[in-house]
Design a protein around this nucleic acid. Structure first.
Length: 745
DNA sequence: TCTAGCTCTGTTTTT
DNA sequence: CAGAGCTAGA
C-alpha cells in the first residue's frame, strides 16, 4: 500500500458506501481498481461476491492478471470480472427460462441485426431509401439503450423525431424485429442490457438473488455507461449501496453509442451519500503534454472540476506539422519514427499513430510497409467478423440453435446449394405465416410455392443440420467441429481457384485453432467445453481483445477511440483538420465538446512526445478537398506548441485555400427542417384504412411495388397478412397493418 | 439460379 | 473509393 499516493490510498480504503473516483488520464486508475479488489478480499469479501465491470475484455483480463499477482490466484480466479456484456449474458443464460429463450440462444452481432432489419423493411414494403438499415438500427439501438421497448416507444419525443424524419414506421419495424429475434431464439448486443433490466424489474426474487450475491460492485470507465447500465447497477446496488465507480468525465467519448456523461456528472445526486475521490496526479506524461491537454479541455463547460498535474519534467513541446497532403503526412510520420528509432534507440512498440476515422489508415499502412516498419492496426475488422469466419460460424451457430435465421440464410447461401433468392423468399413467407424459424418451416413445405427440386435441397440441408445436432452430446467439441466443417463444404469452396481471397482458408484454420485452444483452456480448469459456450464467448470477442504479441516490435496505428486506456511514448495525431477532427457531423455544442474530449484523449496517450499533423489537401470520396486546420490546435495554449521546421504556416494561394471555398455557400439554419420539406414520394396520399376493406381478388397499388392482385389473406401470429402478386415484382407477403396501399377498381 | 460487370451512393467513432 | 444493388445473359 505504500506504493500508492495519498488520494489513491484513500480511494482504495473507503469501502463503507458508494464512491466516485475521478481518475484523470494516466493517474493510476487500474492500479486503484486492482488494489481495491485485493483490499476487499483482505477485508473478508468472498471473491465471487465482488462484481467488477469493464468495457473491454482486455481491460478485464489485464486487471485479473494483476490481481492474481497480489492475492492467492485461487481466490483471484473467482472474482466476477468481465465486461458488462459478458457478465450479463452469463446471467441471461442462467435465467433463460424467465425471458423465454433456451439456454443456447444466439447472440446476433451488428451484421446479423442489420441484415434482419433490412429484411423486415423489405417485408413491410417500406422505402429502403428512407428506412436505411443504418438509420433504423441506430434508432432501435438507441431506444434499447434507453430501456425503451416497442410498447413504450415514442411516448415522448420518439415518434415526433421519426415523423420529422419521415420514418414513422420505425416503431413497427422495432416491434417486428423483436418478434423475429424471439422466433430465432436470438438476442442482440443491446438486449444483454435491456433484458437484464427487464428480468430484474419483473422478477424481484431474481434481482434479490443477485443483490445478495454481489456484495460489492466496481465499475471501470463509468463515464461511458448508458442509461440501461446505470439503471441496472442502481438496482443491483440497491440493497447494500456498496458501489464504486471509476472514470473520467473528460474522457467520455462514446455518446454516439448511448453513453450518457450525466451518469458520472450526477453520480453524487444519484447516490447522495457518495464520497468523491479525485486522482489528479498524472504519472504518464511530461508536464508540457499534461498542460497542453488541460488548456484544451478547460474549454468544455460540462466538467467535474479538476486539474491534472505531472512532475515528470517539462519535456518537449507538442510539435505541429503542416504537410501538403496525406501522402506527405505519412512521410513526416515515417521519417520521425525512423529518426527516433535510430537516433534514440526507441523500440517501434513505443509509437502510435492516431486518427479520427478508420479510412485514414490506408496511407499509413502503405508508407509503413514501404519503409519496412512493422505495424499493427487495432480495432480493424474483428476476426469473428471476417467473411469466411462468419460463414463457418453460421454453421456452428445453426447446429447449436437451429432457429437462428440469420445463420440459416448465410449457411444455405455459402457455398451455394442451388437455393436462390426466390426460394428463400418463399420459405420466409411460409415461416412468417406460421410464426416459426426458417429451418422449422422446411418441415412442412406443403402449400408453399417452393418448387419440388428446391424443396428437396432444403430438406436435405435441414436433415444434415439435425444429424450434426444429434452429435452434439456424443462427440467431443473437436470432433463435432470437424464434422460440421465437413458438412459445410467451406474448405472445398474456399480452396477452389475462383476465390481471390487467400486468407479465407487461413481464417477458417484460425477459427479451428481457436476452438482447439478453447478446449485446452477449459480442460485446465476442469470445465467441459461445449460449442454453445464457445460461441457465446466468441460473440463477445472484439479485435481489441486479442492477445498482444509482445515479442514482435511494431508501431500501433488505430483510431483515437481505440486508443483509450493505452499509452505510448511517442504519439502522432494525424488529420487534425476541420471537417475531419472535429467530425463534420458534430455541430451542436455538446457534440463539439465530445470531439474536444476525443482530442484530449489523443493527446494524453502520449508519455514523452506528441505530434499533431494537419494537411492542406486531402482526397476524400475520390475528390480533393482543402481542409482548414482543426480548431483544437488553436485552442491549445501556444506555450506548449511548436511549429515544425519545414512546415511553418505558409501563405497558401487563396484560390484553393479553405474548405469553405468548396462548400456550398447557402446556409441551412435548420437541417431537420430541411428534411421535413423534402418532397413526399407520393405514398402519403394513400389511405391505410383500405387495409380493413381489402379482399381477395382486389387490385391494389403499393407505393413501392406498384400494382398487384391480392391472392390471399392470411391470419398469422404477427398479424393479418396478404399475399399479393405484383405485376413487376412477383408475389410478396405483406403484413396488413404496416402496408400502405390503395385499392384500385 | 448464378455470376460478371455496370452504376450509384454514401462514408465517425464500436461494446 | 469501395461496397451494394441492379441487369443481362448463361
Amino acid at each position: 500500500m505504500n506504493t500508492l499516493n495519498e488520494s489513491q490510498y484513500n480511494a482504495v480504503m473507503y469501502n463503507s458506501g458508494p464512491s466516485l473516483v475521478i481518475a484523470g488520464a494516466g493517474s493510476g486508475k487500474t492500479r486503484v481498481l486492482t488494489y481495491k479488489v485485493a483490499q476487499l478480499i483482505r477485508e473478508g469479501y468472498a471473491p465471487n461476491s465482488i462484481l467488477v465491470l469493464t468495457f473491454t475484455n482486455k481491460a478485464a483480463k489485464e486487471m485479473k492478471s494483476r490481481i492474481t499477482e497480489m492475492v492467492d490466484p485461487r481466490m483471484a480466479r473467482y472474482v466476477a470480472m468481465g465486461t458488462f456484456h459478458s457478465q450479463f449474458s452469463r446471467i441471461l443464460r442462467d435465467e433463460h427460462e424467465y425471458i423465454g429463450l433456451t439456454r443456447d440462444f444466439t447472440v446476433y452481432d451488428t451484421t446479423d441485426s442489420k441484415s434482419l432489419i433490412k429484411s423486415i423493411v423489405k417485408q413491410m414494403g417500406l422505402d429502403e431509401k428512407l428506412y436505411t438499415t443504418n438509420v433504423v438500427s441506430g434508432r432501435i439501438s438507441a431506444a434499447k439503450n434507453r430501456l425503451i421497448t416497442p410498447d413504450n416507444y415514442g411516448d415522448k419525443e420518439g415518434v415526433t423525431y421519426d415523423v420529422l424524419h419521415r420514418i414513422p414506421k420505425v416503431k413497427d419495424i422495432f416491434r417486428e424485429y423483436v418478434e423475429r429475434c424471439k422466433i430465432a431464439n436470438a438476442i442482440d448486443f443491446d438486449d444483454m442490457l435491456l433484458l437484464i433490466y427487464k428480468l430484474f424489474v419483473q422478477h424481484p426474487e431474481v434481482l434479490e438473488k443477485y443483490q445478495e450475491r454481489f456484495q460489492f460492485i466496481l465499475i471501470d470507465e463509468y463515464q461511458d455507461t448508458n442509461l440501461a447500465q446505470y439503471k441496472i447497477i442502481k438496482l443491483l446496488a440497491d440493497k447494500h449501496h456498496r458501489v464504486c465507480v471509476v472514470g473520467d468525465d473528460s474522457q467520455s467519448i462514446y455518446s454516439f453509442r448511448g453513453a450518457d456523461i450525466n451518469n458520472i456528472l450526477q453520480f453524487q445526486s444519484n447516490y447522495p451519500e457518495a464520497k468523491l475521490f479525485k486522482l489528479e496526479k498524472n504519472y504518464r506524461s511530461t508536464e508540457n503534454i499534461v498542460k497542453a491537454a488541460n488548456s484544451l479541455i478547460k474549454r468544455n463547460s460540462h466538467r467535474i472540476p479538476k486539474t491534472l498535474y505531472s512532475d515528470n519534467g517539462d519535456g518537449h513541446l507538442i510539435k505541429v506539422y503542416n504537410p501538403e497532403n496525406e501522402s506527405e503526412e505519412a512521410d513526416v510520420v515515417v521519417r520521425q519514427i525512423n529518426r527516433i528509432n535510430r537516433d534514440e534507440n526507441v523500440s517501434y512498440n513505443n509509437f502510435a499513430v492516431l486518427y479520427r476515422t478508420n479510412s485514414q489508415s490506408r496511407v499509413f499502412e502503405k508508407k509503413l510497409r514501404e519503409s519496412r516498419i512493422p505495424y499493427a492496426i487495432y480495432g480493424s475488422l474483428s476476426f469473428y467478423q471476417r467473411k469466411s469466419v462468419k460463414d463457418m460460424l453460421a454453421y456452428l451457430r445453426l447446429v447449436v440453435n437451429p432457429k437462428d435465421d440469420e445463420s440459416y440464410l448465410r449457411a444455405i447461401k455459402t457455398p451455394s446449394k442451388g437455393i436462390g433468392d426466390t426460394t428463400l423468399e418463399r420459405l420466409r413467407n411460409a415461416a412468417l405465416e406460421r410464426g416459426v424459424s426458417l429451418l422449422e418451416a422446411t418441415d412442412d413445405l406443403e402449400g408453399t410455392e417452393i418448387k419440388a427440386a428446391a424443396g428437396k435441397r432444403l430438406i436435405a440441408f435441414t436433415e444434415g443440420i439435425r444429424k450434426l445436432r444429434a452429435g452434439m452430446s456424443e462427440l467431443s467439441l473437436i470432433d463435432l467441429t470437424k464434422r460440421i466443417l465437413d458438412f459445410s463444404g467451406l474448405m472445398q469452396y474456399y480452396s477452389a481457384d475462383n476465390q481471390d481471397n487467400d486468407d479465407a482458408l487461413d481464417n477458417i484454420d484460425g477459427l479451428i485453432k481457436n476452438i482447439t485452444d478453447y478446449v485446452e483452456e477449459k480442460g485446465k480448469n476442469d470445465e467441459i467445453p461445449t460449442l454453445s459456450s464457445f460461441l457465446s464467448d466468441a460473440a463477445l470477442q472484439t479485435d481489441a481483445d486479442k492477445e498482444e504479441d509482445v515479442n514482435t516490435e511494431k508501431v500501433s496505428i488505430m483510431t483515437v477511440h481505440a486508443s483509450k486506456g493505452l499509452e505510448f511514448d511517442y504519439v502522432f495525431i494525424v488529420g487534425a483538420e476541420e471537417e475531419l477532427f472535429p467530425s463534420p457531423r458534430c455541430v451542436a455544442d455538446d457534440e463539439i465538446e465530445e470531439e474536444r474530449r476525443l482530442m484530449y484523449v489523443a493527446i494524453t496517450r502520449a508519455a514523452k512526445r506528441c505530434f499533431i499533423l494537419y494537411t492542406n489537401k486531402r482526397t476524400r470520396f475520390g475528390k480533393d478537398i482543402y481542409p482548414q486546420r482543426s480548431r483544437f490546435i488553436s485552442e491549445i495554449d501556444d506555450n506548449y506548441l511548436e511549429m515544425g521546421n519545414s512546415f511553418i504556416e505558409r501563405n497558401r494561394p487563396t484560390h484553393i485555400s479553405t474548405s469553405s471555398y468548396n462548400k456550398p455557400t447557402y446556409s441551412n439554419p435548420n437541417p431537420s427542417l430541411h428534411k421535413l420539406v423534402k418532397p413526399s414520394i407520393g405514398l402519403g396520399a394513400m389511405a391505410s384504412s383500405d387495409a380493413t376493406k381489402v379482399k381477395v381478388g382486389d387490385m391494389i397499388e403499393h407505393s413501392h411495388f406498384g400494382v398487384g392482385e391480392v391472392l390471399e389473406l392470411i391470419d398469422a401470429p404477427s398479424g393479418r397478412q396478404m399475399k399479393v402478386n405484383f405485376k413487376n415484382q412477383g408475389i410478396k407477403l405483406m403484413i396488413l397493418k404496416f402496408v400502405k396501399f390503395k385499392i384500385l377498381s
